[in-house]
Write a protein that binds this DNA or RNA. Structure first.
Length: 829
RNA sequence: GGGCACGUGGCGGAAUCGGUAGACGCGCUGGAUUUAGGUUCCAGUGGGGCGACCCAUCUGAGUUCGAGUCUCAGCGUGCCCACCA
């Protein structure tokens, strides 16, 4: 056979194996498999249209892990589906007059084709799209269960409104005051909306993080910051001559003697009562409030100076009995704490700035322990310290003073210790079409009534007009007008749809029983597979999806739908993003490298190997068109080295080490076992640094190529042993090449159903080691010795090295540090 | 402004425990094969020096027999949060 004919035809080989895997159901998973379960999951993709190599990076890592775990003897489930609801489909409908469903389904078809093209080993029998009525029916069903529990509720509140997308947004979906989707500046509006009471789970969501040892620390930190727990006290201040009290929350009650004003949000309920008694102030306060109402949250918080107007009323400090003015301000948020704060300019930066601007007194009541602080303060002193000018509490340190003052407030019946959270309930209603309809009917006599379970799903109406003007469901009388399930009278359907993050909050359980039409999933089946052992996805979901899904799953466990731990994702791996031409690869930047072209030009296995090899998976990866060439070379080298020997190789058994004639053979077999060891340890430690394992594969192929140059190599048992084993070690990373070689050896079943070889300590052992000799910590010689050489013998050998003797000549050996098989350090002076 | 992470050749990166810095790949240089180009194979490739050697992991201190790795300070980069009382 000439060299030219032995070219690896990756296009034909890869296509053939993908078809065969599909036909033979190689990646289908059974519930009754007795092996230990392992659930690998990549975050559900949104079907935007086309995959690029950034997606491929994500799926390749999950696939390599799934294949590795399967070969290590686990019953692996590795499903895939589609996060199919969402705004882009609706925007396509507005711009191109395409039905959102048609647009979405065709994107799914294309992306599924591309994922199959990548040879990723999913169990496609579990696939679904969240826009399937068979799926979103159960969103509605869970919504109703939450509604019954009071965990889903409707209330009017100031909410984030995106003027471009014409819908409200959850707090988590507002980034720097702008819409996470379109970037428009978000407005505040008072609207009646549906919420999930995620704040009921605040403590559990926090406590659970401490148990998630397999999560990146930074994601846990982000969730902790987002939840934002703070301990303090809430107490009430009387308002002079007005029948109202103002509650304030503070973490620094030790500064309470320094209160020189009270600041309230314009929306605070006490404001109206005060203005009724203060007609002179009413006009300026109302004007001020009106000027704020039209401002976006962004302008109100970030771009504006701290400002406010006095109400003319005074509050009484419960400790000092001092009268302090009540101001309406722009920097106190109605939605956080009590919507009012005690103003302590001396010890809070915001209050300091506000007091300076409005000429309010600054009363220092905390000093540093050395008492070096001089009044007047140039800036707020916000550290803990020692109380001064604080009545009977003067002289106490901040910590004890906080406890003493809190007890006193409780004794006075004026306050209590409080835990406050920064995050709010999850706003889940959207004034858009392409989502799960909220299964609630509003009846004039019965109020809000849940749609009965046997009438689910509430289907998205095909009749709705999607124009971008107003809410499509609200504008569709055929959908809205209905009868009340309770009294039968005329009623209206809720015109909103659910945030698509509801869809992705429990999909990972549905995969386990995807065809169930009597329940969202079978309890026993779901409980046997959950939790997800390894979840893989980007860090952009740290405080959205990953928080919502944890909350949702806690609810599922509480209600007994699933049994077991209430954390759904045991381990989380955050993939790094992909960089191309100096920028993050994305469709909107127009710098994407497509899957189809890459696979056509280089082959799937080369693409996978490059994505695994170029950087550790958590790092950002630079895609280079030159870099992948190295992997194409690797694939060809494997093929040229192994293919001619496939017929003979199978005769050399893999259950024991082969005959090894010399050091070349020992080194070659060792290189195989080093690669096996690397793959095993990267998987077991969950570090997943297969970039290192692929480097070991390079060394193995370099060794094999070198060994094949020696005469008689074609019949060398060590060479044939390595060739025989190679498909097994390649399988997780280059699955097509591995199966092709395996089948050429005469095996009838896929290599992916075989066991990964255990690295053999005997193969890894070396018969000589290099011992580093240092003098005073500096490298002076390397000596070759047998493993396990003793300190005295090593020292004797070291003294024969001229570089060592020169260095210690005329000095006294003070000390010797000996690390067996590694190093001898001679300390001489 | 706060928090977290990171800083190693021309480039991506390796060094999992404090113990040979730069594995492996890309690129580059030279050679063999080839009519030529490409492919493939071989050798070389951090800097300095003829040399035994010296210098080198952002900068500066420190701990240690020994520091890319630990500590402190500074500089730089990235990400997240940002009037949260």
């Amino acid at each position: 056979m000439s060299e030219e004919q032995n070219v690896y035809d990756y296009r034909a080989v890869e296509r053939a194996w993908q078809e065969r895997w599909e036909r033979d159901g190689v990646y289908a998973t059974r519930d009754d498999d007795p092996r230990e379960k392992y659930y690998v999951l990549e975050m559900l993709p949104y079907p935007s249209g086309d995959l690029h190599v950034g997606h491929a990076k994500n799926y390749t890592l999950g696939d390599a892990l799934a294949r590795m775990m399967r070969m290590r003897g686990y019953n692996v489930v590795h499903p895939m589906g589609w996060d199919a609801f969402g705004l882009p489909a609706e925007n396509a409908a507005i711009q191109r007059k395409i039905d959102p469903e048609t647009w979405t389904r065709s994107n799914i078809a294309n992306m599924e084709r591309q994922i199959r093209l990548m040879g990723t080993g999913y169990d496609w029998s579990r696939e679904f799209a969240t826009c399937d009525p068979e799926y979103y029916r159960w969103n509605q069903w869970f919504f109703l269960r939450m509604f019954e529990q009071g965990l889903a509720y409707k209330r009017e509140a100031p909410v984030n409104w995106c003027p471009v997308d014409q819908t409200v947004l959850a707090n988590e979906q507002v980034e720097n005051g702008k819409c996470w989707r379109c970037g428009a500046v978000v407005e505040r509006r008072n609207l009646a909306q549906w919420f999930f009471k995620i704040t009921d789970y605040a403590d559990r969501l926090l406590a659970g993080l401490d148990r998630l040892e397999g999560w990146p620390e930074r994601i846990k930190t982000m969730q902790r910051n987002w939840i934002g727990r703070s301990e303090g006290v809430t107490f009430s201040l009387d308002v002079e001559n007005v029948d109202a009290t103002i509650d304030v929350f503070t973490t620094r009650v030790d500064t309470v003697f320094g209160v020189t004003f009270v600041a309230v949000a314009p929306e605070h309920p006490a404001v109206a009562k005060i203005l009724a008694k203060m007609p002179k102030a009413a006009r300026r306060v109302e004007e001020f409030a009106a000027s704020l109402r039209t401002k976006s949250e962004l302008e109100r918080t970030q771009l504006m100076e701290k400002t406010g107007v006095p109400t003319g009323a005074y509050a009484i400090n419960p400790f000092s009995r001092e009268r302090v003015p009540i101001w309406v301000t722009n920097y106190v948020l109605a939605e956080y704490g009590t919507g009012a704060v005690m103003g302590v300019p001396a010890h809070d930066e915001r209050d300091f700035e506000f007091a300076q601007k409005h000429g309010l007194p600054i009363a220092q009541v905390i000093t540093d322990l050395e008492e070096t602080l001089q009044a007047p303060l140039a800036e707020a002193y916000v550290e803990d310290g020692k109380l001064i000018a604080s009545g009977e509490y003067t002289g106490m340190k901040s910590g004890p003073a906080r406890r003493a003052l809190a007890s006193r407030l409780e004794a006075m019946g004026r306050g209590k210790t409080t835990i406050n959270f920064r995050f709010r309930d999850w706003l889940i209603s959207r004034q858009r079409y392409w989502g799960t309809p909220i299964p609630i009917v509003s009846c004039e006599t019965c109020g809000l009534v849940g749609v009965p379970d046997d009438q689910l799903p509430v289907l998205l109406p095909k009749t709705a007009q999607i124009t971008g003007q107003g809410s499509p469901l609200a504008n569709d009388p055929a959908f809205v007008n209905t009868t009340c399930p309770k009294c039968g009278g005329p009623a209206k359907r809720d015109p909103d749809t659910m945030d698509t993050f509801v869809d992705s909050s429990w999909y990972f359980v549905r995969y386990l029983d995807p065809k169930n039409d009597e329940a969202p999933f079978d309890k026993a089946i779901a409980s046997s597979w959950m939790p997800v052992d390894q979840y893989i996805g980007g860090a952009e979901h740290a405080v959205m999806h990953l928080l919502y899904a944890r909350f949702f799953y806690m609810f599922l466990v509480d209600q007994g739908y699933v049994e077991g731990d209430d954390e759904p994702f045991t381990r989380l791996f955050n993939q790094g993003t992909l960089i191309y031409q100096g920028e993050k690869m994305s469709k909107s930047r127009g710098n994407v490298v497509g899957i189809d072209q890459t696979v056509e030009n280089y082959g799937v296995d080369a693409m996978r190997l490059f994505l695994l090899k170029a950087a550790p998976p958590e790092d950002t990866l630079d895609w280079t068109d030159e870099g992948i060439v190295g992997r194409v070379r690797f694939v060809s080298r494997v093929w040229r080295a192994c293919e001619p020997l496939t017929a003979q190789a199978r005769a050399v058994p893999l259950d024991r080490l082969p005959e090894m004639r010399g050091e070349t053979q020992r080194a070659l077999v060792r290189a195989l076992h080093v690669a096996l060891e690397s793959g095993k340890s990267e998987t077991e430690t969950r570090r997943l640094h297969y970039n290192v394992t692929t480097a070991k594969l390079d060394e193995l192929i370099n060794g094999l190529t070198a060994a094949l140059r020696e005469p008689g190599a074609q019949d060398d048992p060590a060479v044939l042993y390595v060739v025989h084993a190679l498909p097994l070690v390649l399988a997780p990373f280059a699955p097509h090449l591995a199966d092709e070689l395996w089948s050429k050896m005469g095996y009838a079943t896929s290599v992916h159903l075989e066991r990964w070889l255990e690295p053999d300590p005997a193969a890894l052992a070396v018969d000589e080691i290099t011992l580093v000799v240092q003098v005073n910590g500096k490298l002076r010689a390397r000596i070759t010795a047998a493993p396990g050489i003793g300190e005295e013998a090593a020292f004797a050998l070291a003294l024969q090295e001229p570089n060592v003797t020169t260095q210690i000549d005329g000095k006294q050996v003070r000390k010797r540090i000996f690390v067996p098989d590694k190093l001898l350090n001679i300390v001489a002076a």
